[in-house]
């Protein structure tokens, strides 16, 4: 029998990974740099903002030693914009993920901002997708977990937290309905291939069981038809070979 553990990550594991994201804090007290496995944190001096790992930011917030600056996409206006996108503009696909950070030069070109060498393509959690510099109007990979944890631990730092909360519920429902309709209309998206671009980590953890279940069911129902089709194809292929050899003989 299979392991009793479910496939993939469970919600608490997803949330644990989310705590690695960088968030921006406004410190209230000085704090020297701390050596962590992921690198050393910046030195905190009160009026200056600094980017810290999310778990450390929550810890400092709980001790009232820092305030968290919520990312721009968590603002009610940005969330409302995304809800409009999800419900009115594109009713099939999810809202696109945030664009990679770019820097514009004076001549109208833009280049990808990349602190590492060229050729390294960054993805979450190494992209600063939840700091104050994150773009508005797009949900990063860990949007749901981060928003929930921020609302739970730092709701006084978020402008109009109750509105944000209700907008998050709307988003969650709208996007879950999309997941269901995508999975259960495999024909409408071309040969059973479905793009999950823009889906968050928690949403994946939530619907993994259902999605794989549906796919497995479809596969089992189609299995005999599939073997038949393969056999036919093989036979046809042989026929074609025969024809070719006949032609060769004729020549």
């Amino acid at each position: 029998m299979a392991l009793p553990l479910p496939q993939g990550l469970v919600p608490s594991e997803v949330a644990f990974l989310c705590e690695m994201e960088l968030v921006t804090v406004v410190p209230r007290q000085r704090l020297e740099s701390i050596e962590l496995l992921s690198g050393s944190t910046p030195r905190l001096r009160p009026p200056h903002r600094a980017d810290l790992p999310f778990w450390l930011a929550i810890l400092l917030k709980k001790q009232r030693r820092a305030n968290i600056v919520p990312p721009a996409w968590l603002h009610p206006d940005s969330l409302r914009e995304i809800v409009t996108y999800e419900t009115a503009i594109d009713v099939k696909d999810w809202a696109p993920p945030p664009p990679p950070p770019v820097r514009a030069d004076g001549r109208g070109n833009s280049t990808r901002l990349n602190p590492y060498e060229d050729g390294v393509i960054l993805s979450p959690p190494f992209l600063p997708s939840c700091t104050a510099a994150a773009p508005a109007g797009a949900l990063p990979y860990h949007w749901f977990e981060l928003a929930e944890m921020l609302l739970a631990h730092a709701s006084d730092d978020i402008p109009s937290a109750s509105e944000v909360r209700s907008l998050l519920r709307d988003l969650q429902e709208a996007r879950a309905a999309k997941m269901r309709s995508k999975v259960t209309h495999p024909e409408s998206h071309g040969e059973g291939v479905t793009s999950l671009r823009g889906v968050g980590a928690m949403e994946l953890a939530e619907s993994r069981g259902f999605v794989t279940g549906v796919a497995e069911g479809i596969r089992k129902i189609g299995a005999s038809a599939e073997t038949m089709r393969r056999e036919e194809e093989e036979e046809n292929g042989q026929d074609m070979d025969d024809d070719l050899s006949d032609d060769d003989m004729g020549l």
Binding site: P11, A15, E148, A152, M202, A205, S207, G209, G213, V214
Partner: peptide, 20 residues
């Protein structure tokens, strides 16, 4: 079985949200 799997996922996320 599909219902159970779907429900387990939703419940897991909900439980986590409540715990937070």
């Amino acid at each position: 079985r599909l219902f159970r799997r779907g429900h387990e996922g939703v419940r897991g996320a909900k439980e986590w949200t409540d715990n937070v």
